[in-house]
Design a protein around this nucleic acid. Structure first.
Lengths: 170, 170
DNA sequence: ATTTAGTTTCTGAAATTACTGAAAGTTATT
DNA sequence: AATAACTTTCAGTAATTTCAGAAACTAAAT
Protein backbone atom coordinates (compact mmCIF):
# COMPACT_ATOMS: atom_id res chain seq x y z
CA UNK A 1 0.00 0.00 0.00
CA UNK A 2 2.80 2.39 0.81
CA UNK A 3 4.31 1.79 -2.61
CA UNK A 4 0.97 2.85 -4.01
CA UNK A 5 0.94 6.09 -2.10
CA UNK A 6 4.51 6.80 -3.14
CA UNK A 7 3.98 5.57 -6.69
CA UNK A 8 3.22 8.89 -8.26
CA UNK A 9 6.15 10.56 -6.57
CA UNK A 10 8.40 7.94 -8.07
CA UNK A 11 7.17 8.52 -11.59
CA UNK A 12 4.31 6.07 -12.08
CA UNK A 13 0.84 5.80 -10.63
CA UNK A 14 -0.71 4.21 -7.59
CA UNK A 15 -1.59 0.83 -9.04
CA UNK A 16 1.72 0.44 -10.77
CA UNK A 17 3.56 1.31 -7.60
CA UNK A 18 1.62 -1.34 -5.74
CA UNK A 19 2.30 -3.93 -8.38
CA UNK A 20 5.98 -3.23 -8.28
CA UNK A 21 6.11 -3.38 -4.50
CA UNK A 22 4.15 -6.61 -4.46
CA UNK A 23 6.44 -8.32 -6.92
CA UNK A 24 9.48 -7.24 -5.00
CA UNK A 25 8.45 -8.60 -1.65
CA UNK A 26 6.89 -11.77 -3.02
CA UNK A 27 9.27 -14.68 -3.17
CA UNK A 28 7.83 -16.47 -6.16
CA UNK A 29 6.92 -15.04 -9.53
CA UNK A 30 3.22 -14.22 -9.87
CA UNK A 31 0.66 -14.47 -12.64
CA UNK A 32 -1.33 -11.47 -13.75
CA UNK A 33 -4.42 -12.93 -12.11
CA UNK A 34 -2.67 -13.41 -8.81
CA UNK A 35 -1.58 -9.80 -8.91
CA UNK A 36 -5.11 -8.62 -9.67
CA UNK A 37 -6.49 -10.67 -6.78
CA UNK A 38 -3.81 -9.64 -4.34
CA UNK A 39 -4.40 -5.94 -4.99
CA UNK A 40 -8.13 -6.10 -5.79
CA UNK A 41 -7.80 -4.42 -9.12
CA UNK A 42 -9.10 -5.37 -12.53
CA UNK A 43 -7.33 -7.80 -14.78
CA UNK A 44 -7.13 -5.19 -17.52
CA UNK A 45 -5.45 -2.75 -15.23
CA UNK A 46 -2.83 -5.32 -14.35
CA UNK A 47 -2.12 -5.84 -18.01
CA UNK A 48 -1.51 -2.13 -18.52
CA UNK A 49 0.63 -1.96 -15.42
CA UNK A 50 2.77 -4.82 -16.61
CA UNK A 51 3.36 -3.07 -19.89
CA UNK A 52 4.42 0.08 -18.09
CA UNK A 53 6.71 -1.72 -15.67
CA UNK A 54 8.31 -3.52 -18.56
CA UNK A 55 8.93 -0.22 -20.31
CA UNK A 56 10.84 0.81 -17.18
CA UNK A 57 12.59 -2.56 -17.36
CA UNK A 58 11.61 -3.28 -13.78
CA UNK A 59 9.98 -6.65 -14.27
CA UNK A 60 10.46 -9.60 -16.57
CA UNK A 61 8.35 -12.54 -17.68
CA UNK A 62 9.16 -16.00 -16.56
CA UNK A 63 7.71 -19.14 -18.07
CA UNK A 64 7.21 -22.21 -16.00
CA UNK A 65 7.55 -25.41 -18.06
CA UNK A 66 4.24 -27.10 -18.66
CA UNK A 67 2.34 -24.01 -17.57
CA UNK A 68 0.94 -21.67 -20.14
CA UNK A 69 0.54 -18.67 -17.88
CA UNK A 70 3.04 -15.88 -17.81
CA UNK A 71 4.73 -15.33 -14.50
CA UNK A 72 6.22 -11.99 -13.55
CA UNK A 73 9.18 -11.24 -11.32
CA UNK A 74 11.39 -8.25 -10.60
CA UNK A 75 14.14 -7.77 -13.18
CA UNK A 76 17.40 -7.79 -11.26
CA UNK A 77 18.18 -6.89 -7.70
CA UNK A 78 17.18 -3.79 -5.79
CA UNK A 79 20.21 -1.85 -6.90
CA UNK A 80 19.54 -2.63 -10.56
CA UNK A 81 15.97 -1.51 -10.24
CA UNK A 82 16.85 1.75 -8.51
CA UNK A 83 19.32 2.43 -11.25
CA UNK A 84 16.73 1.92 -13.93
CA UNK A 85 14.26 4.22 -12.23
CA UNK A 86 16.97 6.81 -11.95
CA UNK A 87 17.94 6.52 -15.61
CA UNK A 88 14.37 6.63 -16.79
CA UNK A 89 13.66 9.71 -14.75
CA UNK A 90 16.78 11.39 -16.04
CA UNK A 91 15.47 10.76 -19.52
CA UNK A 92 12.08 12.25 -18.70
CA UNK A 93 13.02 15.06 -16.39
CA UNK A 94 16.33 16.33 -17.61
CA UNK A 95 17.01 15.48 -21.21
CA UNK A 96 14.07 17.33 -22.81
CA UNK A 97 15.03 20.45 -20.92
CA UNK A 98 18.64 20.14 -21.93
CA UNK A 99 17.63 19.96 -25.57
CA UNK A 100 15.39 23.00 -25.29
CA UNK A 101 18.03 25.03 -23.54
CA UNK A 102 20.61 24.20 -26.16
CA UNK A 103 18.27 25.40 -28.89
CA UNK A 104 17.54 28.60 -27.04
CA UNK A 105 21.15 29.37 -26.41
CA UNK A 106 21.79 29.35 -30.14
CA UNK A 107 19.50 32.34 -30.68
CA UNK A 108 21.04 35.76 -30.70
CA UNK A 109 19.83 37.94 -27.82
CA UNK A 110 18.50 41.22 -29.12
CA UNK A 111 18.30 43.22 -25.92
CA UNK A 112 19.32 43.39 -22.32
CA UNK A 113 16.46 41.34 -20.96
CA UNK A 114 17.04 38.56 -23.42
CA UNK A 115 20.68 38.60 -22.58
CA UNK A 116 19.87 38.09 -18.94
CA UNK A 117 17.43 35.30 -19.75
CA UNK A 118 20.11 33.57 -21.78
CA UNK A 119 22.64 33.94 -19.02
CA UNK A 120 20.27 32.20 -16.65
CA UNK A 121 19.45 29.48 -19.14
CA UNK A 122 23.15 28.96 -19.61
CA UNK A 123 23.53 28.40 -15.89
CA UNK A 124 20.79 25.82 -15.86
CA UNK A 125 22.26 24.13 -18.88
CA UNK A 126 25.65 23.84 -17.23
CA UNK A 127 24.17 22.47 -14.06
CA UNK A 128 22.10 19.84 -15.78
CA UNK A 129 24.92 18.81 -18.01
CA UNK A 130 27.30 18.42 -15.12
CA UNK A 131 24.80 16.32 -13.22
CA UNK A 132 24.04 13.99 -16.11
CA UNK A 133 27.65 13.51 -17.00
CA UNK A 134 28.61 12.82 -13.43
CA UNK A 135 25.80 10.37 -12.84
CA UNK A 136 26.52 8.35 -15.93
CA UNK A 137 30.15 8.17 -15.01
CA UNK A 138 29.32 6.92 -11.56
CA UNK A 139 27.55 4.04 -13.22
CA UNK A 140 30.73 3.08 -14.94
CA UNK A 141 32.41 2.27 -11.63
CA UNK A 142 32.54 -1.28 -10.39
CA UNK A 143 30.14 -1.97 -7.51
CA UNK A 144 33.20 -2.36 -5.35
CA UNK A 145 34.60 1.06 -6.19
CA UNK A 146 31.18 2.55 -5.74
CA UNK A 147 30.88 1.03 -2.34
CA UNK A 148 34.21 2.45 -1.29
CA UNK A 149 33.23 5.82 -2.60
CA UNK A 150 29.99 5.82 -0.62
CA UNK A 151 31.73 4.79 2.55
CA UNK A 152 34.19 7.59 2.03
CA UNK A 153 31.41 10.14 2.35
CA UNK A 154 32.60 13.68 2.72
CA UNK A 155 36.06 12.25 3.29
CA UNK A 156 36.14 12.41 -0.47
CA UNK A 157 37.08 16.06 -0.03
CA UNK A 158 40.36 15.12 1.56
CA UNK A 159 41.14 12.59 -1.13
CA UNK A 160 40.60 15.21 -3.81
CA UNK A 161 42.90 17.64 -2.05
CA UNK A 162 45.46 14.89 -1.72
CA UNK A 163 45.27 14.01 -5.37
CA UNK A 164 45.71 17.70 -6.17
CA UNK A 165 48.83 17.90 -4.13
CA UNK A 166 50.38 14.84 -5.70
CA UNK A 167 49.74 15.90 -9.26
CA UNK A 168 50.27 19.60 -8.72
CA UNK A 169 52.93 19.80 -11.37
CA UNK A 170 50.83 18.43 -14.23
CA UNK B 1 6.08 27.21 -21.44
CA UNK B 2 8.54 24.38 -21.35
CA UNK B 3 8.85 24.79 -17.59
CA UNK B 4 5.11 24.30 -17.47
CA UNK B 5 5.21 21.07 -19.40
CA UNK B 6 8.04 19.82 -17.23
CA UNK B 7 6.51 21.18 -14.03
CA UNK B 8 4.74 18.05 -12.93
CA UNK B 9 7.76 15.89 -13.59
CA UNK B 10 9.76 18.14 -11.34
CA UNK B 11 7.34 17.82 -8.45
CA UNK B 12 4.90 20.68 -8.86
CA UNK B 13 2.24 21.50 -11.46
CA UNK B 14 2.12 23.28 -14.77
CA UNK B 15 1.33 26.76 -13.54
CA UNK B 16 3.84 26.61 -10.76
CA UNK B 17 6.51 25.43 -13.14
CA UNK B 18 5.77 28.36 -15.43
CA UNK B 19 5.89 30.82 -12.59
CA UNK B 20 9.22 29.53 -11.46
CA UNK B 21 10.68 29.62 -14.96
CA UNK B 22 9.39 33.13 -15.53
CA UNK B 23 10.92 34.45 -12.34
CA UNK B 24 14.24 32.87 -13.16
CA UNK B 25 14.64 34.35 -16.60
CA UNK B 26 13.24 37.76 -15.69
CA UNK B 27 15.82 40.23 -14.57
CA UNK B 28 13.71 42.28 -12.18
CA UNK B 29 11.47 41.04 -9.39
CA UNK B 30 7.80 40.84 -10.37
CA UNK B 31 4.50 41.51 -8.64
CA UNK B 32 1.79 38.89 -8.41
CA UNK B 33 -0.25 40.78 -10.96
CA UNK B 34 2.59 40.98 -13.42
CA UNK B 35 3.01 37.24 -13.12
CA UNK B 36 -0.69 36.67 -13.69
CA UNK B 37 -0.65 38.87 -16.78
CA UNK B 38 2.52 37.43 -18.21
CA UNK B 39 1.20 33.90 -17.99
CA UNK B 40 -2.50 34.67 -18.51
CA UNK B 41 -3.60 32.91 -15.37
CA UNK B 42 -5.86 34.04 -12.57
CA UNK B 43 -4.64 36.17 -9.73
CA UNK B 44 -5.82 33.53 -7.22
CA UNK B 45 -3.83 30.88 -8.95
CA UNK B 46 -0.71 33.00 -8.72
CA UNK B 47 -1.27 33.40 -5.03
CA UNK B 48 -1.41 29.65 -4.50
CA UNK B 49 1.61 29.18 -6.66
CA UNK B 50 3.59 31.68 -4.67
CA UNK B 51 2.73 29.86 -1.49
CA UNK B 52 3.87 26.58 -2.96
CA UNK B 53 7.10 27.99 -4.36
CA UNK B 54 7.84 29.53 -1.00
CA UNK B 55 7.33 26.17 0.66
CA UNK B 56 10.03 24.85 -1.66
CA UNK B 57 12.10 27.89 -0.73
CA UNK B 58 12.55 28.73 -4.38
CA UNK B 59 11.37 32.31 -4.31
CA UNK B 60 11.50 35.17 -1.86
CA UNK B 61 9.59 38.40 -1.37
CA UNK B 62 11.25 41.69 -1.97
CA UNK B 63 9.87 45.02 -0.89
CA UNK B 64 10.61 48.11 -2.86
CA UNK B 65 10.72 51.24 -0.65
CA UNK B 66 7.72 53.46 -1.18
CA UNK B 67 5.84 50.71 -3.00
CA UNK B 68 3.23 48.72 -1.21
CA UNK B 69 3.25 45.76 -3.53
CA UNK B 70 5.17 42.59 -2.88
CA UNK B 71 7.76 41.73 -5.46
CA UNK B 72 8.96 38.18 -6.01
CA UNK B 73 12.35 36.95 -7.13
CA UNK B 74 14.19 33.64 -7.20
CA UNK B 75 15.81 32.77 -3.87
CA UNK B 76 19.47 32.25 -4.59
CA UNK B 77 21.29 31.20 -7.72
CA UNK B 78 20.55 28.26 -9.96
CA UNK B 79 22.70 25.88 -7.99
CA UNK B 80 20.95 26.83 -4.75
CA UNK B 81 17.57 26.27 -6.29
CA UNK B 82 18.48 22.90 -7.74
CA UNK B 83 19.76 21.90 -4.35
CA UNK B 84 16.49 22.85 -2.70
CA UNK B 85 14.44 20.94 -5.22
CA UNK B 86 16.66 17.97 -4.66
CA UNK B 87 16.37 18.20 -0.88
CA UNK B 88 12.65 18.68 -0.98
CA UNK B 89 12.18 15.69 -3.20
CA UNK B 90 14.37 13.60 -0.99
CA UNK B 91 12.07 14.54 1.85
CA UNK B 92 8.96 13.60 -0.10
CA UNK B 93 10.17 10.60 -2.03
CA UNK B 94 12.62 8.88 0.22
CA UNK B 95 12.14 9.74 3.85
CA UNK B 96 8.58 8.47 4.29
CA UNK B 97 9.61 5.17 2.78
CA UNK B 98 12.64 4.93 4.98
CA UNK B 99 10.48 5.40 8.05
CA UNK B 100 8.01 2.78 6.96
CA UNK B 101 10.72 0.28 6.18
CA UNK B 102 12.34 0.78 9.54
CA UNK B 103 9.05 0.09 11.29
CA UNK B 104 8.48 -3.01 9.26
CA UNK B 105 11.91 -4.39 9.89
CA UNK B 106 11.24 -4.30 13.61
CA UNK B 107 8.42 -6.85 13.30
CA UNK B 108 9.27 -10.45 13.80
CA UNK B 109 8.79 -12.52 10.65
CA UNK B 110 6.57 -15.50 11.36
CA UNK B 111 7.15 -17.57 8.25
CA UNK B 112 9.30 -18.03 5.23
CA UNK B 113 7.45 -15.59 3.00
CA UNK B 114 7.61 -12.84 5.55
CA UNK B 115 11.27 -13.51 6.01
CA UNK B 116 11.83 -13.03 2.32
CA UNK B 117 9.79 -9.84 2.28
CA UNK B 118 11.85 -8.51 5.11
CA UNK B 119 15.07 -9.40 3.38
CA UNK B 120 13.98 -7.39 0.37
CA UNK B 121 12.82 -4.49 2.47
CA UNK B 122 16.18 -4.57 4.19
CA UNK B 123 17.88 -4.22 0.83
CA UNK B 124 15.79 -1.23 -0.09
CA UNK B 125 16.41 0.30 3.28
CA UNK B 126 20.16 -0.02 2.86
CA UNK B 127 20.09 1.44 -0.59
CA UNK B 128 18.03 4.44 0.38
CA UNK B 129 20.07 5.06 3.45
CA UNK B 130 23.32 4.93 1.54
CA UNK B 131 22.01 7.34 -1.04
CA UNK B 132 20.73 9.87 1.47
CA UNK B 133 23.85 9.76 3.53
CA UNK B 134 26.07 10.16 0.52
CA UNK B 135 24.07 13.02 -0.92
CA UNK B 136 24.05 14.97 2.30
CA UNK B 137 27.77 14.50 2.66
CA UNK B 138 28.37 15.76 -0.83
CA UNK B 139 26.69 18.95 0.22
CA UNK B 140 29.24 19.40 2.90
CA UNK B 141 31.99 19.83 0.32
CA UNK B 142 33.02 23.31 -0.72
CA UNK B 143 31.72 24.31 -4.15
CA UNK B 144 35.30 24.20 -5.31
CA UNK B 145 35.88 20.63 -4.20
CA UNK B 146 32.56 19.64 -5.66
CA UNK B 147 33.50 21.16 -8.95
CA UNK B 148 36.78 19.29 -9.05
CA UNK B 149 34.96 16.10 -8.21
CA UNK B 150 32.49 16.57 -11.03
CA UNK B 151 35.21 17.35 -13.51
CA UNK B 152 37.01 14.23 -12.45
CA UNK B 153 34.26 12.11 -13.91
CA UNK B 154 35.08 8.47 -14.19
CA UNK B 155 38.64 9.34 -13.23
CA UNK B 156 37.17 9.06 -9.76
CA UNK B 157 37.72 5.32 -10.03
CA UNK B 158 41.45 5.80 -10.36
CA UNK B 159 41.54 8.21 -7.45
CA UNK B 160 39.83 5.68 -5.23
CA UNK B 161 42.28 3.00 -6.23
CA UNK B 162 45.11 5.44 -5.57
CA UNK B 163 43.86 6.24 -2.13
CA UNK B 164 43.60 2.50 -1.46
CA UNK B 165 47.17 1.93 -2.45
CA UNK B 166 48.51 4.72 -0.31
CA UNK B 167 46.64 3.70 2.81
CA UNK B 168 46.91 -0.02 2.23
CA UNK B 169 48.58 -0.62 5.55
CA UNK B 170 45.90 0.95 7.72
C1' DA C 1 -13.73 54.88 10.83
C1' DT C 2 -13.62 54.56 5.83
C1' DT C 3 -11.56 53.88 1.78
C1' DT C 4 -8.27 51.89 -1.02
C1' DA C 5 -4.63 48.72 -2.63
C1' DG C 6 -3.32 44.83 -2.09
C1' DT C 7 -3.24 39.39 -0.71
C1' DT C 8 -5.41 34.91 0.49
C1' DT C 9 -8.89 31.41 0.66
C1' DC C 10 -12.33 28.66 -1.17
C1' DT C 11 -16.01 26.69 -4.30
C1' DG C 12 -17.40 24.50 -8.05
C1' DA C 13 -16.32 23.83 -13.07
C1' DA C 14 -13.06 21.92 -16.45
C1' DA C 15 -9.38 19.09 -17.68
C1' DT C 16 -6.69 15.29 -16.90
C1' DT C 17 -5.64 10.78 -15.43
C1' DA C 18 -6.70 6.14 -13.82
C1' DC C 19 -9.72 2.10 -13.76
C1' DT C 20 -13.15 -1.37 -14.94
C1' DG C 21 -15.26 -4.81 -17.55
C1' DA C 22 -16.40 -6.45 -21.82
C1' DA C 23 -14.83 -7.54 -26.31
C1' DA C 24 -11.12 -8.77 -29.30
C1' DG C 25 -6.81 -10.93 -29.88
C1' DT C 26 -3.32 -14.67 -29.39
C1' DT C 27 -1.43 -19.13 -29.02
C1' DA C 28 -1.26 -23.95 -27.54
C1' DT C 29 -3.88 -28.18 -27.58
C1' DT C 30 -6.96 -31.47 -29.33
C1' DA D 1 -10.38 -26.26 -37.61
C1' DA D 2 -12.34 -25.86 -33.08
C1' DT D 3 -11.76 -25.18 -28.44
C1' DA D 4 -9.66 -23.69 -24.37
C1' DA D 5 -6.57 -20.88 -21.66
C1' DC D 6 -4.73 -16.95 -21.48
C1' DT D 7 -3.52 -11.81 -22.62
C1' DT D 8 -4.37 -7.18 -24.52
C1' DT D 9 -7.05 -3.36 -26.00
C1' DC D 10 -10.38 0.04 -25.58
C1' DA D 11 -14.68 2.75 -24.63
C1' DG D 12 -16.90 4.62 -21.07
C1' DT D 13 -16.93 5.86 -16.19
C1' DA D 14 -14.92 7.28 -11.89
C1' DA D 15 -11.56 9.75 -9.31
C1' DT D 16 -8.29 13.22 -8.94
C1' DT D 17 -6.09 17.41 -9.96
C1' DT D 18 -5.93 22.02 -11.55
C1' DC D 19 -7.81 26.39 -12.13
C1' DA D 20 -10.70 30.80 -12.42
C1' DG D 21 -13.16 34.04 -10.17
C1' DA D 22 -15.74 35.65 -6.37
C1' DA D 23 -15.68 36.59 -1.58
C1' DA D 24 -13.12 37.30 2.54
C1' DC D 25 -9.37 39.15 4.60
C1' DT D 26 -5.41 42.63 5.90
C1' DA D 27 -3.20 46.66 6.43
C1' DA D 28 -1.86 51.39 4.95
C1' DA D 29 -3.58 55.97 3.99
C1' DT D 30 -6.81 59.45 4.60
Amino acid sequence: MHCGEMGSRWGFNRTIGQMCGLLIITKNPMTANEIADALSISRGNVSMGIKELQSWQLIRVQHIPGDRKEYYAPAGDIWDMANRVFEERKKREIEPTLTLLRDNLLDEASNDDELYAQKQMGEIHNLLETVTKWSSELQRLTPEQLNKLMKLGSGIGKVIDLKDKIFKKE
